[in-house]
Each structure stands twice: as C-alpha cells, then as structure tokens.
Amino acid sequence: MHSNKYIFLYSSAMVILVAVALTVVAVQLKPAQKNNIRIEKMQNILAAANINSTTKDAEILFKKFITEDVVVNSKGEIINGEQAFPVNLELETKKPPEKRLLPVFICTKENGEKNYIVPLRGKGLWGPIWGYVAFKKDFNTIAGAMFDHKSETPGLGAEINTSAFRQQFKEKQIFDALGKYMPVRTVKGGAKKNDLHGVDAITGGTLTSNGLSNMLQDGLSVYVEYFNKQKK
C-alpha cells in the first residue's frame, strides 16, 4: 500500500505537470485559433455582400472590397475613433439600445456599387444565432444576407445557414412605401409571392425562424435613424 504522503505528492505532481502542459498547448495554439475566428468573421461579412471567399483569400478579399467601416449609435450619429471590426456584438446586444456601438461595413464592388453591411445577433431555439445583412445604397433593399448558428437542430433550424434560405432575402425591403420601418420576417407556411417583407419560414424549424425574425426586428431597428439620415 502507498502512504498518504505518497498519494499526496503523486497527485500534486500530476496536477502541476498537467497544468503546465495544457497551458503551453493553449498559449501556443491561441494565435491560430484567434485567426480562425477573425477569418470566419471576414468570410461572413463578405458572404452577406455575395462575395464567395475561401479561408485562404478571405483576408485579401476583405481588404479589397470592404473599403470603409463606421461605428454609429442608435441616433444615427457616427462615433469617431471606433473601429467596426473589433466590436463584440455579444457584449453590445446586452447593453440598452441607446448605448450600443453599431458597426457598419461598407463594401465597394468592382462596378462601383456600394453595399452597407450590418451585423445582427439573436437567439434561436437552442443557442445564439447571428448574421450579416447587406443593404443597397437606398438603405432599404437587401442585397444579400448571411446567417449562422451555434447549436440549432440539424436538418431543421440549422437550415438557416443554407444558401437556399439566404437567397430569399435578396430584393426584400425593410421600409414600406411610406417609409415606415417594417423589417423582413419569416412567414410560417410560406410568404406570398409579392410580399416585400416576408420570406418562407423553415419547415420544422418554426422556433428558430421566429428567433430569426426577432433578431431582424431588434437588430435592424437600432439602425433606422442612421439609415434615414443617410437616405437624405
């Protein structure tokens, strides 16, 4: 049998050894992991503006197309000295709307057309969902959208990140003919053909679709003032 002292020393040695080994691994790999997250964000933003990128060329394409970025507040005023890319939406959405930093990425296409991309974050059925929506220069018509999720049901709610679902958002509008705010929402059982403010909800993914509608409603409403100012 082993003495208590042996057991104690054995476990202490084990804990220290393991702690050192894990810390070394974690510190070594941290830069690569952070870079992956950064590249993914770039790819998402580009995807909203309908630019396909791979993990390799995302950085170059991002520099080429995303020519400008601004951070605004809910009154539509531009906040100087803030960068759009590092803004952490997870923290921002927890603040009250008037205190949030609201990033806008401006994408200039090869033909000179400008897209204005805003990030969104909300709750799906299980966990967080997020996305990016690109607007045309009228600040009303959607040019493209990109959504992703952490843990929605595969085959059902998880469909929000498929291109079939995302393509529906093209040419939809977030203001009605009188200029009143009316965001795009998901319609259970399918949207009417000429509905400018609705897309088909996902069959079997109703709660995820509802979460997505809420995310669009809340996430875009804070930008209304900025959009109205830009239109003039």
Partner: peptide, 20 residues
C-alpha cells in the same frame, strides 16, 4: 480522468486551431 481530460483538451485545442 485527469489523463483522459488533458488529452481531450489538447485534441480540442488542436482542432480549433487547424480544422476550425
């Protein structure tokens, strides 16, 4: 458990870094 958990953590970190 400690040995298994450390190996799993290492695998997880490597996956996050190389096959995100």
């Amino acid at each position: 458990l400690i040995v298994v958990a450390s190996l799993v953590i290492i695998v997880d970190q490597v996956l996050k870094a190389y096959v995100y």
